[in-house]
């Protein structure tokens, strides 16, 4: 590592820090995009097996080249701008969808040293950046000059704003017991306690003491991503495909990339906040980045599993769940954790 740094310093001089940062960004974004491509493959295969089908199996061995073929097709398609649309906003909207989905990765740690920017307020940063994601949806719906797109955008924006609150409260309980907004410290905080000392680390992770909040976060995350069973924003049977119905080619692909990059992001955050990130579940195995990836894959599999299992929620039930069930539950649990922390039974010293 030092050899690389010295070599770079020699070639680029003072600009090396910028070049090195750009390199790190490429090292995060390139695997992420590959991950997105193969997540779509994984999704089709998993749902295929759950529905007694085979899934994609024509392009390449086991259909492994299928995502590349799909990407190539989308690249070559024409982008049609609807008449009467607001052209500038129509073009900008997909960019506004993908930019937050990528920018959020800046503070996500993969191990305690492998992180692009280990900033103090990483949790707040994630909250701020992901809250921008809703603009891509609203603006695409408005700019398309189409009823279906507009209805989809309205539904999705209302949904995302509602579930953001429950999600925020779930995060508040986590930062209460971690005493920090920094992801690395949040993960390291999960490595201590009675069970961790006994070598059963997975019982000291946040998912167990914060089980209700873990479930709230996971379900709100699914809603926030507009994934099934909360995909009323797309609602194929009612509003065709929602906000991106007028998009084609690469502009559509950007929405798709943003959705799947956000899925991977929520999976990473769930692993970090509740499942102990890169920590090993048992004492005799070493910690490492592979645990992080394994946990992310598990959460991603849950999303696909949900999609193959549950029918779509009705809109009023969705709003009821967000505002009348999750929000009071969150308030209640914040108070419980607060009281728990000042009693002698506190387990997070």
């Amino acid at each position: 590592m030092d050899a690389v740094m010295n070599f770079g310093q020699g070639i680029f001089g003072g600009a090396w820090i910028a070049v090195w940062t750009l390199l790190k960004i490429v090292l995060i974004v390139a695997p992420l995009m590959l991950g997105v491509a193969y997540l779509t493959y994984f999704e089709r295969k998993v749902i295929g097996f759950m529905q007694q089908r085979i899934g994609p199996n024509r392009v390449g061995p086991l259909g492994l080249i299928q995502p590349i073929a799909d990407g190539l097709k989308l690249l070559l398609k024409e982008i049609i701008v609807p008449s009467g649309s607001s052209k500038a906003v129509f073009i900008i909207a997909p960019m506004l969808a993908i930019a937050p989905a990528l920018a959020a990765w800046a503070v996500v740690p993969f191990t305690d040293t492998l992180v692009l920017a280990n900033i103090d307020a990483s949790l707040l940063y994630i909250l701020a950046i992901t809250s921008m994601g809703v603009y891509g949806v609203i603006l695409s719906g408005w700019a398309s000059n189409s009823k279906y797109a507009f209805l989809g955008a309205m539904r999705s924006a209302a949904q995302m704003v509602s579930y953001e609150i429950a999600m925020g409260f779930a995060l508040i309980t986590v930062l209460m017991i971690a005493g920090s907004l920094n992801f690395v410290e949040i993960v390291n905080g999960q490595n201590k306690g009675m069970f961790a000392d006994m070598g059963l680390g997975f019982l000291s992770w946040n998912w167990l003491p914060l089980l209700p909040m873990f479930l709230v976060y996971l379900i709100s995350g699914t809603a926030e991503l507009n994934r099934a069973p909360f995909d009323i924003a797309e609602g194929e049977s009612e509003i065709v495909a929602g906000f991106h119905v007028e998009y084609s080619g690469m502009a559509f692909a950007l929405f798709f990339l943003a959705e799947y990059a956000n899925m991977i992001l929520v999976a990473a955050l769930t692993s970090i906040l509740f499942l102990g990130g890169w920590l090993s579940p048992v004492g005799f195995l070493p910690d490492g980045i592979w645990w992080m990836f394994a946990k992310m894959s598990f959460v991603l599999f849950l999303f696909l599993w949900f999609r193959a299992t549950f029918p779509r929620y009705r809109y009023d039930l969705l709003m009821r769940l967000g505002w009348k069930v999750f929000l009071p539950l969150c308030f209640f649990w914040v108070i419980i954790v607060g009281v728990w922390m000042i009693t002698p039974l506190n387990i997070w010293n």
Partner: peptide, 24 residues
């Protein structure tokens, strides 16, 4: 950094979304 992030969470992430809703 706290004020900057709070500005973005509160105004860009919430207030302006509702504003856009109404204006649209």
């Amino acid at each position: 950094e706290f004020l900057a992030i709070a500005l973005i969470v509160v105004y860009v992430g919430a207030v302006m979304v509702l504003f856009l809703f109404v204006v649209m």
